[in-house]
Design a protein around this nucleic acid. Structure first.
Length: 835
DNA sequence: GTGCGTGCCCTACC
DNA sequence: ACCGGTAGGGCACGCAC
């Protein structure tokens, strides 16, 4: 037996069965850049939580009984291997629990079914998945460095000769491992990355042909294609490799992926397009897509209902669909309105290159293939650069959640919160709660909504010298401060020093004894603070990513407890979080007013107020004083001091509009919230006009120049001098077309697209404009005037004036008692009161 | 049939 | 498959005339 010692960083986890047992197969690298496969196993078990006050004798008998359980599952014989008694916690309460060992993880379900015994209260811990169970058991955490030693299997017959059939530098059976402390500081890891992108002549999966595939890696760029131009322009296209036909293209793709042998194969929407397309064409043309390290083909998992295709896994190579990760980790903080590769790349990479992808049409004969190659390659290059940019975040997400990158890159934030909890339960001696079953989920979904945040009704106007205070991680710190969670919820039973709040007319209580959920959240918030502080001293991409991961976790914890799919769902905890936070912010508003400031606005966790006769430093002192009076870990911070601020009325009536304001910072920066300016379902013309008006009004302190500007815009509209692209309205299709009850303009636009055989699915951004009806057409409804963005036609002057630009400008001028309708002719329906 | 008010659907934002 | 609050466009529908 040959043994080896090496350092090792795990990247991908998979498992297989051999002689009835489960083995984990970890693919990773060592610091020499060698690719390793590590085979290991771990104990497999589930928990049976015993009923209270069972006598010792009865427990012993029960253990003997369970030990005798034998199963015959589809001809496979298996049995309970051992049973041990432990003192554990479940939802914070001490319990006696049996640890029931089995041979194979897949049998746990069937064993649990056999445990419907009177002595057993609950069965838990058999729905985690083997990889998660393994990581919990052996603490071999993704993307951490380990010193390992094991038996070399490269020429071994063991495990069905796995060592001989796997394209790795070394395959070993793990014997010992030790974590290398602070390893990320000592050993850096630079992954081998290959980005890819395909071009096809038909967008529906597999229904057209793949025309070309591009590949991009650090020092490698390639376009494989079977489409040649008739004449060459002389442009340098030496990255292009020609093949005979589509089948050869697929062969070449496989060949290059195998040759490059990347750690990560990265695409953009590749779970939903590129990889399934490649599979469909490979099946059709009978070309095996053997890109796995064991020469297996990609495996496709089922997607959820209405959410398209599921993830696509390649054995030994981590397949990443960057779009998924961007959606969960970045999109809420991004400016981009669509998550198209070009827009996202231009935001993250400052790639200003205008990237018009040439539209392929099978009817076009003299196609400019050379341009097409270039665009195809560019998409892979962008994907590669985006991956490099996001790599620190992927790395830290994986380390913090302790789940493989393949999973964390696809999970939503609720799964991330849950993974973090699951992998930290052992410190609390906690048995994991089960995932809710179908009936529980539907029951939870039918629950009434609970009362949420407080929003202050502003008095419309323009204000000067404004300060804004924010609660840092408001809901997170509330959960920690008041110990709000499923395991600390007492219902209507009071305890000594318990936290009480009235929800829906009933008083409920939460224990004072810290629960594991708030405790974990407290650690998360403290760690976030620590890394943020470290960042202030020294900027570092990995620290930034870590800080960001903890911030996102802290922010998602509240939503998690109110989420119907959560293991640790607790509607009362979620409702109490909103309730306590609401009480707290109202108290602070009172205090600010008592200190002779004047609060003008507040929403959820922020308060804007006039500093009046006071100085900024005095206001900061006041902030300190406020903080000293806040309970627990709750904390207020200064968001900023602002020169001016604007609040407007609602469209209907004279009361102030909530969630709509604009602030001009001392540094000249504008902070605009809620206005049409920031809404993508308004046309760029209306948005830009409003933005300019807000800017002028805030900078000048009056409306005069803004009015001049507005008049110019109106003139241009009437003279049809506005570009079509400034009139496009973008609206997201939120569900399948057939489910719409109201036929709105964007539904009509989507139907038009469908008629053109463009595949329309939920999540598509529908782009359209409103066209001028011809005389006598009598098209009254907006939806009767919808044109697709590339459809020819004149724009509807009346619509863009009276339904877009003027409504966006109107209530800003109203603040200055200027009625734009009186001043500007062209608003057709003048009301009697206007004369 | 047209005009108008109201309720509800729907999206996107905080 | 993260929560609730809010604005506001637009359609559906009932009613008056």
């Amino acid at each position: 037996m040959k043994t080896e010692k090496t350092d090792f960083i795990p990247l991908d986890y998979d498992y297989f069965d051999f002689e009835g047992r489960n083995y984990i197969k970890i693919i990773g690298r060592n610091s020499q850049g060698k690719r390793l496969c590590v085979i290991d196993s771990c104990e497999v078990y589930l928990w049976a939580i015993l009923k209270d006050s069972l006598e010792k004798d009865r427990i012993s008998k029960l253990i003997e009984k369970i030990k005798k359980i034998k199963l015959n599952i589809k001809g496979r014989q298996t049995k309970v291997e051992n049973v041990e008694l432990y003192d554990k916690n479940f939802l914070g309460k001490p319990v006696k629990a049996l640890k029931i060992f089995a041979t194979n993880y897949k049998d746990l379900h069937d064993i649990a079914d056999k445990l419907g015994l009177p002595e057993i209260e609950m069965r838990r811990g058999y729905d985690l998945g083997f990889a998660t169970h393994y990581i919990m058991e052996k603490k071999i955490i993704p993307l951490n460095w380990y010193e390992i030693s094991g038996e070399v299997l490269d020429h071994s017959e063991e495990f069905g000769k796995i060592g001989m059939h796997l394209d790795v530098d070394m395959c070993i059976k793990l014997l010992e491992k030790k974590e290398i402390a602070d390893s990320d500081k000592k050993i850096s890891f630079e992954p081998k990355v290959l980005a890819y992108d395909i071009e096809t002549d038909e967008i529906k999966i597999g229904e057209g042909e793949i025309l070309m595939v591009s590949l991009a890696s650090q020092n490698f760029k390639k376009v494989i294609t079977w489409k040649k131009p008739k004449t060459f322009s002389g442009k340098n296209i030496d990255y292009v490799e020609y093949v005979k036909n589509e089948a050869e293209l697929l062969d070449k793709f496989v060949e290059y992926v195998r040759k490059m042998s990347p750690d990560f194969l990265v695409g953009y929407f590749s779970d939903g397009f590129d990889l399934p397309y490649l599979r469909a064409r490979a099946e059709k043309l009978k070309v095996p897509l053997t890109i796995g390290l064991d020469e297996s083909q990609p495996r496709f998992f089922r997607g959820g209902i209405g959410r398209g295709l599921g993830p696509a896994k390649i054995s030994g190579i981590v397949h990443i669909d960057l779009l998924k990760f961007i959606q969960t980790a970045y999109s809420q903080y991004m400016q981009s309105e669509t998550l198209s590769l070009n827009e996202v790349a231009s935001e993250f990479l400052n790639d200003s290159k205008k990237n018009f992808k040439p539209k392929f049409s099978s009817k076009t004969h003299d196609h400019n293939w050379e341009d097409y190659y270039e665009y195809n390659l560019h998409d892979s290059v962008l994907t590669l650069r985006l991956f490099e940019k996001m790599w620190p975040d992927l790395l830290e997400f994986s380390r913090v959640m302790q789940e493989p990158i393949f999973d964390v890159s696809r999970n939503g934030m609720s799964s991330n919160v849950e993974d973090y909890i699951i992998h930290n339960l052992e410190r609390f001696n906690e048995i994991p709660e089960k995932r809710p079953v179908h009936e529980e989920i539907s029951g939870r979904r039918q629950m009434e909504k609970y009362e949420g945040a407080f929003v202050f009704e502003p008095v419309p106007g323009i204000y000067e010298n404004i300060a804004v205070f924010d609660f840092t991680s408001s809901y997170g710190t509330t959960i920690v401060t008041y110990n709000l969670s499923k395991s600390t919820f007492l219902g209507n039973k009071k305890e000594k020093d318990s936290h009480s709040i009235v929800l829906e007319g009933k008083e409920v209580h939460f224990s004072k004894k810290p629960g594991f959920f708030p405790e974990m959240l407290k650690e998360i918030i403290i760690l976030r603070k620590k890394y943020k502080q470290e960042l202030k001293n020294k900027e570092d991409a990995v620290t930034r990513a870590r800080s960001n991961a903890f911030k996102l976790l802290a922010n998602a914890a509240y939503g998690y407890q109110g989420f119907f799919g959560a293991r640790y769902y607790c509607r009362e905890a979620a409702a109490a979080t909103a309730g306590f936070a609401k009480k707290m912010i109202k108290e602070v508003i009172e205090k600010i007013n008592k200190a002779t400031y004047k609060v003008i606005y507040s929403d959820t966790d922020s308060i804007a107020f006039l500093i009046q006769d006071k100085t900024e430093s005095k206001t900061l002192e006041f902030l300190k004083k406020l903080n000293s009076q806040l309970p627990g870990i709750m904390e207020l911070e200064l968001e900023g001091f602002f020169k001016r601020g604007l609040w407007v009325t609602k469209r209907t009536g004279t009361i102030g509009a909530k969630k709509k304001y604009a602030l001009l910072g001392k540094d000249g920066r504008l902070k605009i919230r809620g206005f049409e300016t920031v809404r993508r379902d308004w046309c760029p013309l209306a948005r830009e006009t409003q933005n300019k008006i807000i800017k002028l009004v805030l900078e000048e302190g009056n409306e005069k120049r803004a009015l001049v500007y507005l008049k110019e815009v109106i003139k241009k509209i009437k003279q049809r001098k506005i570009d079509k692209e400034d009139l496009i309205i973008k609206t997201m299709l939120q569900k399948p077309l057939s489910e719409y009850k109201n036929i709105t303009p964007h539904v009509i636009a989507a139907k038009k697209m469908q008629e053109k055989e463009l595949p329309i699915t939920a999540g598509n951004l529908i782009e359209y404009y409103i066209a001028q009806p011809k005389d006598g057409e009598g098209k009254k409804l907006v939806r009767e005037r919808v044109n697709l963005s590339d459809e020819k036609g004149e724009y509807d002057i009346d619509y863009y004036l009276n339904k877009q630009v003027l409504p966006a400008a109107e209530n800003i001028f109203q603040v200055f008692n200027v009625n734009v309708n009186e001043i500007i002719e062209g608003k057709k329906q003048m009301k009697l009161g206007d004369f």
